[in-house]
Nucleic acid binder design. Sequence first.
DNA 1: AACCAGGTTGACG
DNA 2: CGTCAACATGGT
Length: 272
Amino acid sequence: MDIKETNGGVLVTSDCFDLADTLDCGQCFRFESEDNLTFKGFYKSHFLNATKLSDTETLFHNTDIKTFNEVWRQFFDFDTDYDAFKEVFKKDETLSKACDFAGGIRILKQEPWETLCSFIISQNNNIPRIKGIISRLCENFGEKCENGYLFPSAERIAKLNVEDLAPLRSGFRAKYILDAAKKVANKELVLDTLYTMPIDEARKTLMSIKGVGPKVAECTLLFGFYRLEAFPVDTWIKKVLTEYYPDGFPGYAREHGGVAQQYLFHYIRNKK
DNA sequence: AACCAGGTTGACG
DNA sequence: CGTCAACATGGT
């Protein structure tokens, strides 16, 4: 991992980072790209504009080393050694292939409320439509700024009703979005406590929200709270488990199972 | 035109 | 406890 300031930007060189795979592997839904090389989007109110230059080089535009270190360095988890994860994963044949195929993916440290809301929307839904609903959520209720719209706060959404959310075309999920927003806004559920809460308790807490079951809770913990032991099982991972792990998923890959899961998810969906 | 999508709920045995 | 239809909507 090498990070250096360049002309009007910051250049990152790493064998364990692929911008396109990281932003397009289903852990986030709000980064856009025309050519699958340059990606734009937001973390909180910070605007990202970055380009994949090669398999190992990524250029972050319009930023300096100070902003980069404060915002993007932590968002993209650049201080974690993914080679160490892969060393463990490579003891397993399928995981080894997944590492080779998807080893540029990193687990993003996303904003908790946005992550929770996004994965509520994700249930029984496909990725293109999930992106559409979230995009309309931001356009309708998020703050407008120079480069687009921010993700609306729970407090903002909590004041709305189901009819207000009709423009999202989120279907039966609208009532779930509102329940989550209300529980967060009135502090019945304090999201920040989930960073350190014992994971089983954190799962239960999230599942007290209507529309949050085991899968959505697990995704929220992994992608919104950096709980790398979380292991979301969706339809694709179910296939992987029955097909490649009939005797169970290896215990040694469990500690950072979320990383393994993400490699496997991307591998099984995109190989060949 | 069916079938599926990064599932969850509530009803029923 | 386990099973299962229903749920809104749009992409393939």
